[in-house]
């Protein structure tokens, strides 16, 4: 096969509906409970919640963030995109915070589906899951190509 043809075929495959659907289903979305009135959160607001700077949504309602284990790739991508931190940076940040003020990191759940279930049953919860796990949840932000975008 000639290089041009190979490139064309690769491009067609890359743009095929199946590939797009797969990329979308593995997209990370930040979710809240359906009953939550918050519609979107920007990077600064999410960072404040996940760094323990605030325990409230911008509307003043209590926010209870949940995390994934540090070694989870979804967590690592979320930390990079929202907090600009690596896994080690996050550990250092929370060790320092605990020594300073005793503040602890958001509780960790074992898997993305556990986060989805927790957010679905907890009105003030906020978490991040893969789009394919977000059924029944309200999406307030998305992570695309390593950057946070609106819902």
């Amino acid at each position: 096969m000639q290089p041009t043809k190979s490139l064309l075929v690769a491009l067609l495959i890359a743009l095929s509906p199946v590939t797009i659907a797969s990329a979308e289903s593995s997209e990370i979305v930040v979710v809240v409970n359906k009953a939550n009135s918050v519609t979107s959160l920007n990077k600064a607001q999410l960072s404040a919640i996940y760094k323990g700077k605030t325990t409230e949504f911008p509307n003043g309602n209590s926010a209870s963030a949940v995390n994934l284990p540090a070694e989870n790739p979804t967590r690592q991508e979320f930390d990079k995109a929202v907090l600009n931190m690596s896994s080690d940076d996050c550990k250092r940040y929370w060790i320092d915070m605990k020594i300073r003020s005793g503040a602890g990191a958001p509780p960790k759940l074992a898997s993305v589906s556990a986060v989805a279930r927790h957010v679905a049953k907890t009105p003030n919860a906020i978490g991040y899951v893969l789009l394919s796990d977000a059924t029944g949840l309200k999406v307030v932000a998305r992570i695309r190509a390593g950057a946070l975008v609106g819902p």
């Binding site: 949940v66 759940l109 074992a110 556990a114």
Partner: peptide
């Protein structure tokens, strides 16, 4: 699913009392 629930049982973000210790 049960395994996930089991793993999350100790730390499910609920309002039960949590006791933690650390130091330097």
């Amino acid at each position: 699913a049960l395994n996930e629930q089991l793993a999350a049982a100790d730390n499910d973000g609920s309002e039960d009392r949590k006791l933690s210790a650390w130091g330097f």
